[in-house]
């Protein structure tokens, strides 16, 4: 446990060049290439409050995600959005700033859905608190959820409060042989039924499903779906932490699309999660082609992992419409008028 907020405030006050906010650095690859003097947050640690029956946990930004999950596990609780852990020391502040969610996202919700409150130091070195530790709170604009996924461009998150939930009582994994089109169709059909499907992954002709919930519900669903074979131990963790062999490529695209979008006819390999709504693509097709294919079905393509040259050239994130970009710039100015924090990490414009 240690509190570095005073040091952060001093550092930001005296900053005369852009700062690159960094937790453990496990997500340095995410977004555009980091720029600026590194401001390490990993020393600002500690679970400040955890109350299992109030369903929340509050921790300083540098607290390792692993420490938080261990504390929750002890009380039979969890972070249902299953954020990826790219390293043993990945921090909770980085998790919120990156806004990435894991396998259960389609059923359980995303990081932002579980953010209850944040403490933030803004570009004017003011320490601000938004939201809180209670589950329902509409006092003021919902800045804490805005911060989730903002890639540290709006301020330094010093602490976060997250909603937590009980771990599912029962869980089982089923596997089916299916081509991509069949899998997409089937996943969408199942999703409209009251079945306890909490995660899915299709790769290379195999659909893996995770069922979780009340024991009776899981057993009934298993019967109904016809017992497929089970998957190897640790499969879901490997998927969550992106350790499956599929992810070990130099250039990886992340296509977020409506789950109903048909099979995307793009060269390369695909791995599909979130009931069809997340399509990972390893491909050397032209970036414009990939972005256009995602946009054509109502989604967007993120250049998730790529050599710095390619990221600099095409940008990590799909371009925004002009009025949306204006709102982004205005918001950036509202929180960070001097443009100190993580310049260009999200869009080169701010």
């Amino acid at each position: 446990m240690s509190d570095l907020s005073e040091q952060f405030i001093e550092r930001i006050k005296s900053a005369n060049a852009p700062l690159c906010i960094r937790g453990s650095g496990s997500k340095d690859f995410h977004g555009n290439t980091p720029r600026g003097d590194v401001l390490e947050t990993a020393g600002h640690t500690g679970i400040v409050a955890y109350e299992p029956t109030e369903l929340f946990i509050t921790a300083r930004c540098g607290t390792p995600l692993a420490e938080i999950e261990a504390a929750l596990n002890e009380k039979g609780q969890c972070l249902p959005f299953e954020p990826p852990r790219f390293a043993a020391d990945s921090t909770v502040g980085g998790m919120v700033a990156a806004g990435l969610s894991g396998p259960r996202r389609a059923s359980a919700g995303s990081v932002r859905d579980y953010v209850l409150g944040v403490k933030l130091i803004d570009g004017q070195a003011r320490e601000l608190a938004f939201g809180g530790q209670v589950m329902k709170n509409v006092a003021g604009y919902d800045v804490s959820r805005l911060i989730a996924g903002s890639l540290g461009t709006l301020g330094l998150i010093t602490a976060v409060s997250l909603k937590v939930l009980p771990q599912p009582v029962a869980e089982t994994t089923l596997r089916f042989e299916m081509n991509q089109g069949e899998a997409l169709d089937q996943l969408n059909r199942w999703a409209g039924q009251p079945l306890p499907i909490v995660a899915s992954c299709w790769e290379n002709g195999v659909l893996t499903l995770r069922l979780a919930g009340a024991r009776a519900a899981v057993e009934a669903a298993q019967l109904k779906l016809g017992a497929g074979e089970t998957a190897p131990d640790g499969f879901w963790n490997d998927l969550r932490d992106q350790r499956l062999p599929f992810f070990a490529v130099e250039t990886l695209w992340r296509l977020s699309v409506p789950s109903l979008a048909p099979r995307l006819d793009l060269p390369g390999e695909q791995l599909i999660e979130w009931g069809g709504a997340l399509r990972w693509l390893s491909s050397d097709a032209a970036p414009e082609t990939i972005r256009a294919a995602a946009a054509a079905v109502g989604g967007s393509a993120t250049l998730y992992r790529a050599p710095p040259g390619l990221k600099a050239q095409v940008g990590t994130f799909a371009p925004l419409s002009a009025p949306l970009m204006t709102l982004h710039r205005n918001l950036k100015v509202a929180f960070d008028p001097q443009g100190i924090f993580n310049p260009g990490r999200m869009y080169p414009d701010f």
Binding site: G99, A106, Y141, G149, S150, G298, G299, S300, L320, S321
Partner: peptide
């Protein structure tokens, strides 16, 4: 006129949906 959010589960940029809801 602006569209925020997406028919997909997330959209690029800031989560403006979160700011607009409850505003």
């Amino acid at each position: 006129v602006v569209e925020v959010g997406s028919d997909a589960l997330d959209a690029p940029g800031y989560d403006l949906l979160a700011v607009l809801i409850g505003s």
